[in-house]
Computed example of a mutant assay.
Amino acid sequence: MKIWILSFIFIVFLNCNKEAAEAKSIPKDSIQLIENTKKDSIKTPENKPGIFTFTTELCNNTGYYDKTKYTKEELEGTYKLYFELNGLLLDSPHVFGLEALRETRRNKDQILQKLEKDFTEKKKLIENLKIVNIPYWQNMKRQKYQELLQYYERQKIQIMAYSDPSILLSTKTSQKCSRFVKALNSDDTQMVEVWRKLREEMSKRNGNPQEVMNEFENHLNSVDKKDYAIIDLIVFGWGNCVNNEIERPNYDEKMNDQFYALFIKMDSECDEP
Rank of each mutant, 00 (worst) to 15 (best):
I3L: 10
W4G: 02
I5A: 07
L6K: 00
S7N: 02
L14I: 15
L14D: 05
K18P: 00
A21Q: 08
A23F: 15
S25W: 10
I26H: 07
I26L: 12
D29S: 14
S30L: 15
I34F: 14
E35W: 07
N36I: 14
N36E: 12
K38W: 04
K38C: 05
K39C: 02
D40W: 14
D40L: 15
K43I: 13
T44A: 13
T44P: 01
N47R: 09
K48G: 03
G50W: 06
G50V: 07
F52S: 01
T53I: 06
E57Q: 10
T68D: 09
T71A: 01
L75G: 02
G77L: 08
T78F: 07
F83P: 02
F83V: 11
N86L: 12
G87D: 03
S92K: 13
H94M: 13
F96Q: 12
E99H: 14
T104V: 15
T104G: 13
R106L: 15
K108S: 15
D109E: 14
Q113H: 10
L115T: 10
E116N: 12
K117V: 04
D118F: 07
F119I: 11
E121H: 10
L125M: 01
Y136F: 15
N139F: 06
M140E: 07
K144R: 08
K144S: 14
K144T: 11
Y145R: 07
E147M: 10
Q150W: 01
Y151N: 09
Y151H: 07
Y152G: 05
E153T: 06
I157M: 02
Q158D: 03
Q158I: 13
I159A: 01
S163F: 03
S166T: 15
S166V: 12
I167E: 01
L168E: 02
L168D: 04
L169G: 09
S170R: 12
S174H: 03
V181R: 00
V181N: 00
A183P: 08
A183M: 07
A183W: 03
A183N: 04
L184M: 03
D187I: 04
T189E: 10
V192H: 02
V192M: 01
E193P: 00
E193S: 12
R196G: 04
K197H: 12
R199C: 05
R199M: 13
E200G: 04
E201H: 10
K204V: 13
N206K: 08
P209Y: 08
Q210K: 13
E211M: 11
E211R: 11
V212K: 08
V212G: 02
E215M: 11
E215L: 05
L220C: 03
N221M: 13
K225L: 09
Y228C: 05
Y228T: 09
I230R: 15
D232F: 03
V235F: 09
G239W: 04
N240Q: 13
N240G: 14
N243P: 01
P249M: 13
N250R: 09
Y251E: 14
Y251P: 08
K254Q: 13
K254A: 10
A261D: 09
K265A: 12
D267T: 00
D267K: 05
E269M: 06
D271H: 04
